[in-house]
Amino acid sequence: MLARSRTLPKTALIAFALAALITSPSGAADKRSMILATTTSVRDSGLLDTLLPEFTEATGIRVRVIAVGTGAALRMGREGNADLLLTHAPASEKVLVDEGIVTRRTPFMENFFVIAGPAKDPAKISSAISPEDAIRRIDAAGAGWVSRSDDSGTHKREKALFHAAGLDPEADRDRLVRTGTGMGLSLQIAGERRYYILSDIGTFLAFHKRVGLEVLSKPGSSLRNIYSILQLDSSRFERPLHTSEAEELERFLLTKKTQRAIGAFGLDKFGRTLFTPLKLADDAHASPVSK
């Protein structure tokens, strides 16, 4: 009889746990949802948390945001693992457009990259005439450089800058650190080592007090950072994409109201705006906020 009396509480426990398993809350079963693959810089800035609730409320579409590097986001699009992409690497995006995987590429906002470094500025890049000149000065002075090395949009830009400066981005140099990790951690490594680094302005502002680095570059066209919406060709994939949801989200991001919200974003958190909307050109409120 001993064994039987022991089984009772155990069976009850298992039944309870199974019931909890089945009835537990989940948002995964929503009627309309889509996967938005985007870059960590967009997620980390908090912009989407500001914009998306309104979209979900208006349309009932749940947006599942997967934040990865631009390289990984483009790969997700190529393989049909995302419904819409939001990336910032024009050259790599155009490859997907040429291949027909991306049916429409719409630049919708921009900000800029900065070259940050220690306030002492050992390579004297604050007096450089261009970002490329700054990179050449860092190289010539043998100053330390932190490279993202993670195929993110920022890393792609970093390589393009080195190319434009006439340098080989893959070459081994003294005092070169390849982090292979996100912007925040890379900035902290640069801060600890007192090295130079390329960063998007949003992440830099979130970290600059903690890492003690300064913006030493002047804005130049080669530091423009354009974010685009990429619609994918659903017919290429075995399993259809949520194209109508993706198109609704694109329309939402391009409305004047959303574009204005993008232009105002960051004022309360950083005391300055982070993005310049690109689809307000004919609007009186449009004004360049990058400086």
Binding site: D49, R64, V65, I66, M183, G184, T203, F207
Partner: peptide
């Protein structure tokens, strides 16, 4: 899980994310 807010974000992935955001 993808660390999706309100769906798949758990304590460990949230800690990772907020650390990478400097929060």
């Amino acid at each position: 899980g993808g660390n999706i807010a309100g769906e798949t974000r758990v304590l460990t992935t949230a800690i990772m994310m907020h650390t990478s955001m400097g929060e």
